[in-house]
Design a protein around this nucleic acid. Structure first.
Length: 640
RNA sequence: GGGGCUGUAGCUCAGUUGGUUAGAGUGCCGGUCUGUCACACCGGAGGCCGCGGGUUCGAGUCCCGUCAGCCCCGCCA
C-alpha cells in the first residue's frame, strides 16, 4: 500500500500559509492556504499526508522531492549535535526524515533552538529537500537518499524527557511491560506498534469490504444487554433507573445475530466487541474483538467457502498466504492423530496407536492400561535419539503438565532399545513399530482423555526440541463435527461450544440415549495451532432448542428466564441459519507478529485485568453507588 | 483461588559466600566539535536496592508477609 506513494505531488511551499498560533485542527478543506487552489483529492491527500500545517508526511519525502520547498512537522526522534551542525531525525507515522541545521542554510534562531531540542519535542520546520552528499547517504533509511535543510524551525510543543525511550538503539531491550503499559502514549509511538495497529486497520477494512461485497450487512448489537449464555462470567453494569437490576456486557452477539436471522437479515456480520470477566492469559483479554458472521439458509459448506475467501483476502493484506480450500479434520480425527482439537499442521508429525505391539510387552504399566480399557499411543520421532536425557525429560515434563502421570520413552541405537520403555522391548518390537536406529519413541498409556493432551503437548515440545522444519508456513485448518455436549464432570452435561449447536442429522436419534456421542454441526478455524474462532449451524426449532437446554440441566423456568426471548423469536418462523466468529486480535497477532494480544490492542489490560495507563478500574464515591442502590461489602474497596 | 519467574539510577541490566563508600551501558545536565545517522570526546548530577516485618554484630544478598508485572493451572472458546 505504501508503495503507491509516488514522486510528484505538491510543489507548493509558497502557497501554504503559515497557520500561526491557531488551533491545529482546522478542517483541511477550509484552510485558507488550500482554498483557491485545486482542492486535493482524498487520494492525493493520503499519498502526501498534506494538511494545513504541513506539505507532506516525513516518510513520504524521497529523492523525487529534491529541490522542493516544504513545511514539515513531527517529533524529534533523535538529535546528533556536531557543534556547528545539528542533525535531527524527525518522526511521524509515515516515517523518519533527517533534517539538518547548519549556519550556511539555517537562520540564526533555528541554529540556536536546534541545540536545545529534546527527544519527543514537536517541531515545525521549513526548508528545502536536498540530495545528500554521496558519502552521507544512508541505505538503511527509507528517506536516506535525501535530507531536509532547515531554514526555520519552531518548537510547537515541548516534551518532558520520556520516561521510556521511543527510540531504541539496536542493542537496547524493550522497557518492562509494566512501564510500556503505564506510559502507553510513548510506547504507541514506536514503529512496531504503529505498523501493527495499521495492519489491524487494513485487515478489518478488508473484512468489511469482503463481506459487503457478498451482500452482508453490518448491524450493531447492544453493549448493554442481558447476561449471555457462553458460560463465562458477565461484566455487570448496574441500572440507575432500575436499582437492583443489572445489564450485562455481551460475551458475544450470539443471540442477537440469531434473532437478526429470524428477522430476515439473511447475511449479517459485525466487527463486535466482546467482554468476558475471566482471568487473563497471553492470548486472552477481558475485552476483545470478533469478526462475527451469520447467514440464513446456509449449510456448513457455505460458511467454509465464505470464510476461506475472507481469510485469503486478509492474508493478502497482511502479507501471508491462505491457499483455499483449507484442509479439514473431524474433531475425532484431530484428537486421534494429534491429540488436540487445534493441531498445528505446519508439522506433519502424528500420534499413533501402538496398542497391538506394545500391549504385548511384559510391562505392568502397559498391560494394566490396556486391561483398564485404555490404549498405548505415542509419537515416533525419526532421528530423535539425538536428544539428551535432559531434553527428553523436558518433553516428559510438558506431558505431565498436560495431565499425564508420565511418559515412557525408548531410544533405538545400534540395534537395541534403551530407556524406560526400551528395556521391555523384544527382538521384533522396534521393527514392528517401524522404528530404526537413531529414532526415539515417546509413549503414553491410559484412557484417551489422558493420553491425548499429554501427547499433544509432547508433540509440540519434541518439534521444538528437535527444531523440526515446518512442512508449510501457513497451516489453515477446519476442525469439524465437534461434539454437541461434553461431560460436565459430576454426571451432568455441558455444552461443548454453546447450547445452540444443531446436532448432526445422523446423530439426532442419540440425543437422549447417548448424548456425549452426538456430533454437532460445529467447527473451528485453526491457524498454525491457534484456534482463531468457531461456529456452527444453529438450532432453529424452538422445541429442539428447549429439549437441549433441558438436557443441560436448566429448568423450564430458567429456560424461559434466560432464553425466553430467543425461543420466542425461534417460534416466529426461524430460517435454518448458522455462522462463525473469529478473534480479530488473535488474527492480528498471528499474521502481523507480536508476543501477546497486548501487542495487537492499543490500550490493553494487564494480567490482573487492570488498565495501567488510564488507571481503571477505580473506586467510586459512595454517593454514586448510592445512586445505583449499591452498597459495598466490607473489604470491597469503595470510597473515593 | 493455586504455582512459577521478575522487581537495584529515568531506562536496560550486573552486584561473588551476608561484610567498608551499590556499579556498567544508555538517557539526563554542563562543555568541545561542520557530515552525523548507536556521532565522537571531556566533566557532572542521579539510588526508599518494590513495600512491611524478621534473622544477624552486619541484609541489595537469607526468611516470612505483601504489592506490581509477566507466564502457567483452575476458570474461559
Amino acid at each position: 500500500m505504501h508503495d503507491e506513494w509516488g514522486p510528484g505531488g505538491y510543489r507548493s511551499a509558497g502557497a501554504w500559509t503559515r497557520p500561526g498560533h491557531g488551533p491545529p485542527f482546522r478542517a483541511t478543506p477550509s484552510t485558507p492556504g488550500i482554498r483557491g487552489r485545486e482542492t486535493p483529492s482524498i487520494m492525493t491527500e493520503r499519498r502526501t499526508d498534506a494538511t494545513g500545517w504541513r506539505s507532506r508526511g516525513l516518510g513520504t519525502v524521497t529523492i523525487g522531492q529534491a529541490g522542493d520547498e516544504l513545511r514539515l512537522c513531527g517529533w524529534v526522534h533523535r538529535r546528533r549535535d556536531l557543534g556547528g551542525l545539528v542533525f535531527l531525525d524527525l518522526r511521524d507515522r509515515s516515517g523518519i526524515l533527517q533534517a539538518s541545521v547548519g549556519p550556511d542554510w539555517s537562520g540564526e534562531e533555528a541554529v540556536a533552538s536546534a541545540g536545545s531540542l529534546g527527544a519527543e519535542d514537536v517541531v515545525l520546520v521549513e526548508g528545502v529537500v536536498v540530495p545528500r552528499p554521496d558519502d552521507a547517504r544512508n541505505p538503511d533509511m527509507a528517506t536516506g537518499e535525501v535530507e531536509f535543510q532547515v531554514r526555520s524551525l519552531e518548537r510547537l510543543n515541548r516534551a518532558e524527557t520520556p520516561v521510556i525511550p521511543v527510540y531504541l538503539s539496536p542493542e537496547e531491550e524493550l522497557p518492562s511491560e509494566e512501564l510500556r503499559l503505564r506510559h502507553r502514549v510513548l510506547d504507541l509511538r514506536r514503529v512496531e506498534l504503529q505498523s501493527r495497529l495499521a495492519s489491524r486497520h487494513r485487515m478489518i477494512l478488508a473484512m468489511r469490504n469482503y463481506f459487503d461485497g457478498l451482500g452482508f450487512v453490518e448491524v450493531e448489537t447492544p453493549i448493554l444487554t442481558k447476561p449471555t449464555p457462553e458460560g463465562a462470567r458477565d461484566f455487570l453494569v448496574p441500572s440507575r433507573v432500575h436499582p437492583g437490576e443489572f445489564f450485562a456486557l455481551p460475551q458475544s452477539p450470539q443471540i442477537y445475530k440469531q434473532i437478526l436471522m429470524v428477522a430476515g437479515f439473511d447475511r449479517y456480520f459485525q466487527i463486535a466487541r466482546c467482554f468476558r470477566d475471566e482471568d487473563l492469559r497471553a492470548d486472552r483479554q477481558p475485552e476483545f474483538t470478533q469478526i462475527d458472521v451469520e447467514a440464513s439458509f446456509v449449510e456448513e459448506e457455505d460458511i467454509y467457502r465464505w470464510m476461506e475467501g475472507c481469510m485469503a483476502d486478509v492474508a493478502r493484506v497482511m502479507g501471508g498466504t491462505a491457499e483455499t480450500p483449507f484442509p479439514r479434520l473431524t474433531h475425532a480425527e484431530a484428537m486421534e492423530r494429534f491429540g488436540i482439537d487445534r493441531p498445528d499442521l505446519r508439522f506433519d508429525l502424528e500420534v499413533r496407536d501402538f496398542t497391538p505391539v506394545l500391549g504385548a510387552l511384559d510391562s505392568n504399566i502397559l498391560q494394566g492400561a490396556v486391561e483398564a480399557g485404555g490404549r498405548i499411543r505415542g509419537i515416533h520421532l525419526p532421528g530423535g535419539a539425538s536428544l539428551s536425557r535432559r531434553q527428553i525429560e523436558a518433553i516428559e515434563a510438558k506431558a505431565k503438565g498436560a495431565g499425564a502421570p508420565g511418559l515412557l520413552w525408548s531410544k533405538i541405537q545400534e540395534g537395541s532399545a534403551s530407556g524406560p520403555l526400551g528395556r521391555f522391548f523384544q527382538e521384533d518390537t522396534s521393527a514392528a513399530l517401524g522404528a530404526r536406529d537413531g529414532d526415539l519413541l515417546l509413549v503414553a498409556a491410559g484412557p484417551d482423555n489422558v493420553t491425548s493432551p499429554a501427547l499433544a503437548a509432547a508433540r509440540m515440545a519434541a518439534i521444538e526440541s528437535l527444531e523440526l522444519a515446518p512442512v508449510r508456513d501457513h497451516a489453515w485448518l477446519w476442525v469439524t463435527e465437534f461434539p454437541v455436549f461434553e461431560d460436565g464432570g459430576d454426571g451432568s452435561l455441558a455444552a461443548n461450544h454453546h447450547p445452540f449447536v444443531q446436532p448432526h442429522p445422523d446423530d439426532l436419534h442419540l440425543l437422549e440415549s447417548d448424548p456425549l456421542s452426538v456430533r454437532g454441526q460445529a467447527y473451528d478455524l485453526v491457524y498454525n495451532g491457534t484456534e482463531l474462532g468457531s461456529g456452527s449451524i444453529r438450532v432453529h426449532d424452538a422445541g429442539l432448542q428447549r429439549r437441549i437446554l433441558g438436557m443441560l440441566g436448566l429448568s423450564e423456568a430458567e429456560i424461559d428466564l434466560k432464553f425466553g426471548f430467543l425461543l420466542e423469536a425461534l417460534k416466529a418462523g426461524a430460517p435454518p441459519h448458522g455462522g462463525i466468529a473469529l478473534g480479530v486480535d488473535r488474527l492480528v497477532v498471528r499474521l502481523a507478529g507480536g508476543a501477546s494480544l497486548r501487542d495487537a490492542i492499543a490500550f490493553p489490560k494487564t494480567t490482573a485485568a487492570r488498565a495501567l495507563f488510564e488507571g481503571a478500574p477505580s473506586p467510586v464515591p459512595p454517593v454514586e453507588l448510592a445512586d445505583l442502590g449499591i452498597q459495598l461489602m466490607k473489604g470491597g474497596g469503595g470510597g473515593g
